[in-house]
């Protein structure tokens, strides 16, 4: 495996320059009305998709940006954004 990630600033680079930042879970929820369950769900729970997922990456040893990409967890290859299912 030799992961490469496309940084919006620096282009396609060696995956070891990046830090993985988790599945895309959306913005932080408002604090009001959060239960321990719903908060835990936001913080800890993952979909663990075997296939394409949207995820966050940080170009740690580069420009430092956080950005999202799509990646296939079955091949560990970056992929184009899948077309939205209608």
């Amino acid at each position: 495996m030799a992961l490469t990630i496309s940084c919006p600033n620096c282009g396609k680079r060696n995956g070891y320059e990046f830090r993985y930042g988790g599945e895309d879970k959306g913005p932080r929820p408002a604090e009001e009305g959060l239960t321990p369950q719903s908060w835990c769900d936001y913080v800890h729970m993952n979909n663990c998709v075997a296939g394409i997922q949207k995820e966050w990456w940080c170009h740690k040893n580069g420009c430092g940006a956080w950005f999202t990409i799509f990646r296939n967890t079955l091949t560990n290859l970056e992929v184009e954004e899948p077309e939205a299912k209608l």
Partner: peptide, 14 residues
């Protein structure tokens, strides 16, 4: 461990 989730069971040069 490679710190990004995947199901490949592939090894790395790194």
């Amino acid at each position: 461990m490679d710190p990004w989730p995947n199901y490949t069971t592939l090894t790395t040069a790194h």
